[in-house]
Design a protein around this nucleic acid. Sequence first.
DNA 1: GTCTATAGAGGGATAGAC
DNA 2: GTCTATCCCTCTATAGAC
Lengths: 197, 197
Amino acid sequence: MTTASSKKSDTNRQKIIAAAFDLFYHQGFNQTSFSDIAEAADFPRGNFYYYFKSKDELLKEVVQYQVERIKQMIEVWDRASSDPAERLLFLAKMMEESRDDVVRYGCPLGTLTAELGKTQLGLQQEAVHMFDVLIDWVSARLNELGYADQSRILAMHVIARIQGVTTMASAYSDSAFMDYEIDNIRAELTRLANRDQ
Amino acid sequence: MTTASSKKSDTNRQKIIAAAFDLFYHQGFNQTSFSDIAEAADFPRGNFYYYFKSKDELLKEVVQYQVERIKQMIEVWDRASSDPAERLLFLAKMMEESRDDVVRYGCPLGTLTAELGKTQLGLQQEAVHMFDVLIDWVSARLNELGYADQSRILAMHVIARIQGVTTMASAYSDSAFMDYEIDNIRAELTRLANRDQ
DNA sequence: GTCTATAGAGGGATAGAC
DNA sequence: GTCTATCCCTCTATAGAC
């Protein structure tokens, strides 16, 4: 069967992937067991291997799921404005909306790639695809603003700024610091947009 | 015995703590087993509980060990200059010196607190003491530069900048980005020192 | 296609011989 | 004070009943 099917097992797969993403975020990848996932997604523990070849395979699908979610988020931004400067400011809005989760658990992208970077480099390379989507988009906007060959490293700089904020805000459970830095980042995005190159 | 002793068991303790710090950094806390530590510090696995009550207890001592090391690093900086602006620039030098390790494994402070923040908040609070030492010191220097009540949040900002760089540089194994951002941070430290408040 | 049972390895922690 | 042996638990993964 080559066409997309919509069997019950497919919706189960989706439930498992969504539950796994939340658990990886809240507990870490290596600290999340099949039992945890089975309980959260409400299926028998042993069924896992009917849906996925291995835990690594699950991670790859979780990453793909999150990549799609990030792309959808960006599509919403792009529909809301066609001005590159305005579009970039949605990064600050994203930080505001995820504030409480970030203060409690850190950034789902940053903490996952950091964990996997220790001893699971292959999986880290998969997880980095989540960052790629954001960086590609920021880079494209900066390119429109005239930054040309500097756009990619500046995009990484912007994402790094955000990562630093999430790390310290969650280390100290400090929402006020997060708010303070969201303003700082909004200001830097505005400065980037207004400075002629 | 109330006076400090220097038995063989004390040097063994130190060996274990140093080995555990390296392993926690390279593998993560929860991914490091007693077997790993015993092998690295060359002592029998079962002896662990002669030296430490539990793995949590070991972590606390590892944090204290690292706190002392950071304090020693700062003492060297303070001896090398008495000018607050010059002193702050040692943060950039620190990044240069740890560059290769950071690109490979991330920041030992940031990745440890991020891991523990997921499900071991008590241990995270211990680990954050490592950040406290740096932030207190940066804050004191900014205070000398006239930032008064802003000095603490600006100190957190500076450390957050560094954290963001380590996260992205290690996610992408990108030394060039790290170098680029070390220059950025050096520039920001200089700006902070020169702007009158 | 769904589930139970369990294998096999490795984790933290303990008891007790020397 | 040092080390061996081992307990009990949980983990990933598999075999095979239904």
